[in-house]
Structure formats: C-alpha cells, structure tokens
C-alpha cells in the first residue's frame, strides 16, 4: 500500500476513535446536573393560559408541572385551563364509548380563545401562553418564563371581590364581581377581562400508558367570560381608582363552592397584571 493512502486511512480512523473516546468522557455526573438559582422576589401576578384536553395523554404531566409551580408561586401564578380542539370531548361525542359522560369541559368561548392564541391542528397539546407575550410554548419552557415574568414590577393593581348572591330560598343563583383598579404610572389604556373558573371537577382524563381516569380532578377549568369575549376597555388614571361591577347568572352545571374569578388587564404589551379570587358564599338578594 502507498504510504499516502495508509496515512489518510489512519487519519480517518483516528478521528473516529477520538470521537468514540470523547463520547465516554463527556458525561455529567448526577451530582453536577443541577444548579441552584438565587431566590427571587415575586412582584406581580402572572397569567398562564394552559390549552388542554380530556383526551390529551400528556396533559396530566402538564398538570403536575402546574401543581409544582403553584406550590412555588402561590397566588401570584394564575393558571387557566382551556379545553379545546380535537383532544377535548364534546357532549354526545362518538368517542365517548364509555357512556354517560357527564362532564365535557369544552366551551365555545374556550375554543375561540384557543384559536385566537394560534392553537390549530398541527400544534400539539398541552401548550401554554404566558402573559400573552410568550407565544405558544411547551411545558418545558413554562418554569423559566414564569420566573422571569413574576419578577417584573407591576404598574397595575387589581383588587377583586367576587360574591355569590342567593335567591329568596337561600340558593346561590348569581355572582356579583367588583374589581378595583389602581395604577402607579400616569395613565393606562387596556382591557379588563373577567373569567369564571371552577376547580375540583371530577371528569374523565386520558393519560399515558393507555390509562383512563374517571376520577381525575380537574382544577382551574375555564367556564365562562363575564364581560365579553375580549373583556371591556378601561382607561385607568393615576390617583383615581376605577371600580367595575358585574353580575352574572350561575350555570346549573357549576358548583358554586369551587368557583373562582380571574381578573386580568391587558393591551398590546401583554397582560399587565392578573389576580385570582376565590368566590365567597353569598349574601341574600338585596331588597329593592
């Protein structure tokens, strides 16, 4: 064999052997895989719109991630589960071979919110949008984005008071919501959106490994928009608190004890502030 040829072949084999050797040396030991981050100051409310579905097998994992994040950030992380698309059940679904599905968590407004956010066929669920500035992001990115967003200084302060209103027989039939808005800058024009959420709903959820859980507890499920699909336009001026009041009828499907109201203000710059308030039990209908 020609010396040149041999050298060339040896060089090629050397590159490959080096590669093989490198492969083994590259490993990160279990003790070195985590870096603790400095503690942060959670300054504002962050809204996570989680697009989910009862037939979505990866969604329980997303719910576990959300549980962890809620434990970490508490009231300052506001999560809304919006059921939509092919992974959500509809009443009378052909897929509902289980018979007697009582809880289908999809609602028309939720479908529209999902479409508006860009959830179309070809986009896998679960997927989320954070403060309406992140675009649609997968669950691996939520922790990092929420951590960054929650440290930002808020310019709007929202105080939300939802209260059940009972009818003559003492049964809650309506929900009265009072929202007080204050700002720290001069003036802000935005939309205030009020949503009703319900937690602790027992309904079927598909999971990994062919699992079908009929006793699955669904939390923070979007039920209805109180003040219009896009909310209502508000103009908040410094020094002058703005108060918005609404009253809506309760849907018979909802359990008044598990309801909460989410209020957030948003404009072209995204969600400026978000809060969630648990619905407290009612007062009787005020006398005219």
């Amino acid at each position: 064999m020609n010396i040149k040829k041999t050298n060339f072949k040896l060089a090629a084999l050397a590159i490959l052997t080096a590669g093989a050797a490198l492969s083994a040396c590259n490993d990160i030991e279990p003790g070195d895989r985590y870096k603790e981050l400095p503690p942060i100051d959670a300054k504002r409310g962050v809204l996570l719109e989680e697009f989910t579905g009862q037939k979505c097998v990866n969604c329980p994992e997303a719910h576990d991630i959300i549980k962890g994040l809620k434990e970490q950030y508490g009231d300052q992380l506001i999560v809304v589960g919006i059921h939509s698309g092919g992974d959500a059940f509809s009443i009378g679904d052909g897929d509902a071979v289980w018979g007697g599905i009582t809880q289908c968590l999809r609602v028309p407004d939720g479908e529209e919110y999902a479409k508006k956010a860009g959830v179309v066929s070809g986009v896998g669920l679960p997927i989320g949008a954070i403060n309406r500035t992140s675009g649609l992001v997968g669950r691996n990115a939520w922790s990092d984005i929420i951590r960054n967003e929650i440290q930002k200084e808020p310019i709007v302060d929202i105080d939300l008071q939802p209260e059940l209103v009972n009818d003559a027989s003492g049964e809650p039939t309506k929900l009265k919501i009072t929202a007080d808005l204050k700002i720290s800058t001069d003036k802000v024009s935005c939309n205030l959106q009020l949503w009703i959420l319900e937690s602790d709903i027992t309904a079927l959820q598909y999971g990994l490994n062919n699992s079908f859980n009929f006793d699955y507890k669904h939390d923070h499920v979007f039920r209805a928009a109180v003040n219009g699909f896009n909310g209502e336009a508000v103009s908040i001026v410094h020094g002058t608190p703005t108060t918005i009041e609404h009253e809506i009828d309760l849907d018979a499907k909802w359990n008044p004890e598990n309801l909460s109201v989410v209020g957030f203000v948003y404009n072209g710059s995204g969600v400026l502030q978000a809060v969630e308030a648990k619905v407290s039990s009612g007062s009787d209908e005020p006398e005219e």
Partner: peptide, 19 residues
C-alpha cells in the same frame, strides 16, 4: 431549563456525541 416547581436549573451538556 428549570426543574418545574423548584429553584434549580439544569446543567445541560453543550456537546452530544453519537457513534
């Protein structure tokens, strides 16, 4: 990449070798 619900981020390898 933050481990969800914690204050830890992953030490990710910059290089991945395959053979």
């Amino acid at each position: 990449i933050i481990v969800p619900g914690t204050n830890f981020k992953l030490n990710l390898p910059k290089n991945v070798n395959a053979f």
